[in-house]
């Protein structure tokens, strides 16, 4: 039980996927102009990461290891995740138009999100069991959501503030991200 909690907390704060592992930077910078869209993106990532963790775990141990194909891990996972996202998108569109309206735009963006692939690969690397894999997936996704929503909140205010001309837009966003990353370093002593 304690181990699960440690995995969860470390994925959210200490080894935050965006701010200390530097995975998923593309959506982190691209979809963080408004808190509202950032929350949508975070929700979509949470959804896909959790599912992808579970599915890739099954693929790894039921197929790849059994047939001695571990070297195909990366490419097989990419294939699985891409197909999974497509399938999920179709199912959501059919079953819940409201959820599709909220997540729909962001789902295709996640297809090739390296954070999703990263969490799948790390699960195997760390030799987690199935339950631990799920916790790690959820933790990583919550960490991503936390980072992107906080960042969006800061960027919303940045628009209003007086930024030196050469730093307007992306430069100041990158500086902000680096400061956030340093701030998250403070969590290193937590565990």
């Amino acid at each position: 039980m304690v181990k699960l909690f440690v995995i969860l907390l470390s994925a959210i704060l200490v080894n935050n996927f965006v701010l200390s592992r530097f995975l998923g930077i593309c959506p982190f910078l691209g979809v963080s102009k408004q808190v509202e869209t950032a929350v949508g993106m975070g929700a979509a990532v949470t959804f896909v990461m959790t599912l992808a963790s579970a599915i890739t775990y099954v693929i790894q141990y039921a197929v790849l290891e059994r047939f001695g194909l571990e070297y195909l891990q990366t490419i097989a996972f990419i294939l699985v995740i891409a197909a999974l996202v497509q399938l999920v998108e179709m199912i959501i569109q059919k079953s819940s138009p409201t959820l599709y309206q909220a997540l729909g735009v962001y789902l295709p963006l996640i297809t090739t999100n390296c954070a999703v692939l990263g969490v799948a690969l790390l699960n195997i690397q760390e030799k987690y069991n199935f339950i631990e894999t799920l916790f790690h997936g959820v933790g990583a996704a919550v960490g991503f959501t936390l980072a992107i929503v906080l960042f969006a909140g800061i960027r919303e205010r940045l628009v209003m503030s007086d930024v030196p001309k050469p730093l307007e837009g992306f430069p100041i966003a990158l500086i902000t991200a680096s400061l956030m990353s340093m701030a998250f370093l403070g969590f290193q002593g937590l565990l």
Binding site: L72, A76, V80, I91
Partner: peptide, 23 residues
Amino acid sequence: PVLWLGAFGLLFGGGLAFASKVF
């Protein structure tokens, strides 16, 4: 690897094609 990945791709592709009809 070619055969395995091809099989994977075919499986997923077929699954998605089927799903796109169902959903």
